[in-house]
Design a protein around this nucleic acid. Structure first.
Length: 220
DNA sequence: GTTACAGAGAACGGATCTAT
DNA sequence: ATAGATCCGTTCTCTGTAAC
């Protein structure tokens, strides 16, 4: 079926990419544009908020399910025409997909159990992250995560990153390290600290361990 | 400066696989 | 059975180069 190609609104990245055959055999993950990833995250968030499956959105927007999957994962830069169709189906302005770069007031609602599972490159084994929302406006970057430790999780008291972190223990009991100090933390306890110091669970005393973690950092 | 052409890169759909 | 991910072929755009 012949298609009319629409110029992508995103910069291309693969000037030095190997031929298709080599790319597909290569075990390395495909390159992903930061903008494409942000747009994909926005589309997935809007779709979940609309309680639509990816397949349903794809059908209504006139793209294949495979394409919708790749758009949401930031593996492709969809054309303006496709973005417009998706926006129409979701009943949101197309600019919403670029909301991360636009000053606006917003809120997010994540239904119970619908947090976005995040696979972090630097994830500690057994630590599972679910993103519970995101703040789109202002210069404050907020990352609220539900973190659940599986049976294979081991203590990891070496987290260290910019920003301020708030932790609220939902279940379990741990010996928590912050800098040179340690303290016993159980369900219902909360912590608030400067995340630039080394921190994390040093001993997992009672499982299952789960907690709400919110990191606040200033955008540049 | 413009036109034509070739090759590389990327969007896309259909088929198929995998996980739940 | 369903949803999401992956593979592969097709088609189109973009870019560099040569010819005029």
């Amino acid at each position: 079926m012949p298609k009319k190609q629409i110029a992508s609104p995103f910069p291309t990245l693969q000037k030095q990419s190997p031929p298709r055959s080599a790319r597909q055999k290569d075990s390395a993950p495909p390159k992903r544009s930061t903008t494409s990833i942000k747009v994909g995250v926005q589309i997935r968030a809007q779709r979940l908020a609309a309680d639509l499956s990816a397949g349903a959105l794809a059908t209504q927007a006139g793209v294949s399910r495979s394409m919708m999957s790749r758009i949401e994962r930031g593996l492709v830069s969809p054309s303006i025409e496709v973005l417009d169709k998706i926006a129409t189906v979701l009943d949101v302005p197309m600019s919403r997909f670029f909301a991360d770069q636009v000053r606006r007031l917003d809120m997010s609602h994540v239904p119970a159990g619908k947090g976005l599972k995040i696979e972090r490159v630097d994830a500690v084994k057994g630590y599972h992250y679910a993103l519970l929302g995101h703040l789109l406006s202002g210069n404050l970057f907020v990352e609220p995560y539900l973190i659940e430790l599986s049976d294979e999780a081991t203590p990891y008291p070496a987290f260290q990153h910019p920003g301020v972190k708030f932790i609220y223990m939902l279940s379990g009991r741990v010996k928590y390290r912050y800098g040179s100090r340690t303290l016993e933390v159980k369900a219902g306890d909360s912590l608030l600290f400067d995340a630039r110091a080394l921190h994390g669970a040093e001993i997992l005393r009672e499982r299952p361990v789960s907690y709400l973690s919110i990191v606040f950092t200033l955008r540049e």
